[in-house]
Amino acid sequence: MKLAIQTKDFSFTYPKTKEATLKGINIPIYANKVTALIGPSGCGKSTLLRSCNRIHDVYPGNSYDGEILLYDNNGEKAENILQYKKENDLINLRQRIGMIFQKPTPFPMSIKDNITYGLKLSGIKNKTELLDRTEIALKGAALWEEVKDRLNNSAMGLSGGQQQRLCIARAVALKPQVLLFDEPTSALDPISTASIEALISELKNELTVLIVTHNMQQASRISDYTGFMYLGDLVEYDVTETIFLNPKEKKTEDYITGRFG
């Protein structure tokens, strides 16, 4: 199996705190699979996710330790993304590793401009290419039929579920290797949640998914691998089925069965 990302003894400390929030995490993220991170609030799962595209760097004063290796498409050559210093390297990284947030975050512009925003940033100017890529991305996010007649309307007018699919389309349009999902359905109703989950299962044909979720049923439905985190440690990592049916650690079992968390 090909690797997409691998962390090695990765630790992370927020500014003005003494204790590390993540302590020596080693987790493999396999290419074209869905890996879920579960665990109670404050366990560090979002912190780990947000380290993978260095979005922490938007705020000053964080410190990273260890390595996060990002592999190329063949799963052979890897670079340690924590060594990136220049803004340009971070921009390239973020175009390779997209991110979807808890709440839908459409930009205050039209539906079409939302999709083409990242494409234009990456230097594509040709209008037909932009339009084609918009259509492909919206189809990929199962949103095309709903919005094809109002591409120039404001994205703020879409429903919550549509907005979240727009955000996925926007990220997919850049053809990233990896998509990070930070509890993407926590603000959505069950029907929209189902459509996002279906979409995530589709997406893994083309890219790698790392998803943080509070919802254990969701993790068991959509993921191939699951990592259980607790107080900044990766307690257990395995094939999703094993984690949910045969956990090795007592802590994992307690959490899965709802005894705490």
Partner: peptide, 22 residues
Amino acid sequence: PSVLVESAYSMGATRYEVIKDI
């Protein structure tokens, strides 16, 4: 909202582009 700013950064925007566009 900080998530809006973050999501622009996560699309590969520079600081100047985030200020100008978001």
